[in-house]
Design a binder for these strands. Sequence first.
DNA 1: TTAATATATGAACAGATGTTCATACGTTCA
DNA 2: TGAACGTATGAACATCTGTTCATATATTAA
Lengths: 115, 115
Amino acid sequence: MKEKCERVNPEQTKTLMQKVPDSENITRMSAVFQALQSDTRLKILFLLRQKEMCVCELEQALEVTQSAVSHGLRTLRQLDLVRVRREGKFTVYYIADEHVRTLIETCLEHVEEKS
Amino acid sequence: MKEKCERVNPEQTKTLMQKVPDSENITRMSAVFQALQSDTRLKILFLLRQKEMCVCELEQALEVTQSAVSHGLRTLRQLDLVRVRREGKFTVYYIADEHVRTLIETCLEHVEEKS
DNA sequence: TTAATATATGAACAGATGTTCATACGTTCA
DNA sequence: TGAACGTATGAACATCTGTTCATATATTAA
């Protein structure tokens, strides 16, 4: 064990750690942010924010392979960041909820302040 | 070039893409979400959310090496998610702004809804 | 049925990432 | 000064990630 520095207060540290989300939720959060850490997936979300779209529309807009779009959508779907609806032979994707909009908009504000 | 599916409207696609942030900002956003995609760094932020702390306090609380904490803090600092203040021989870190709080709190809400 | 279209998925590869170890730097105080 | 403490950083490693290619599945229309 390492010596504690003079600022460390073991009891307070314990209290502070109790207010950190438990491991399970931290891991889930990591997975969500991990999904948002991809140029392709972010662009997908900024497109879906404007209008629900099928896979081939996204493919055309983003100029990447259909496979890449589909893999990206799976990642987003698994974390409930986007949802799906079947429409004939098309699979229509849309933003899952307001959390997703808040996340990408807040982040955009943050980086825009720096430019 | 691939054939367009019947849902694709090239003109509309163009309009939609114009409302997607430019490559530079998308890349910056990726970097921010990338920084948030780490159990250690998330825990650091949830600690700093409660109280500004020096490196050794974080080290004690998180039970990882000093090096890991310091590397994690550098990543967060470079993206202006945390800021630093020198206090004698201590380096005190604190949450940069409200965006950071909004990001982690919104994400926590999202994952908590699922549990 | 069959052909065509729309979407999903597994494998595989190159590139990126987080941790630790070792070490260097900076500040304080004796 | 120098020793002790607090912090930063480069290297290296094992692990993980995103893309493409090839192929499979599902729906529609003929």
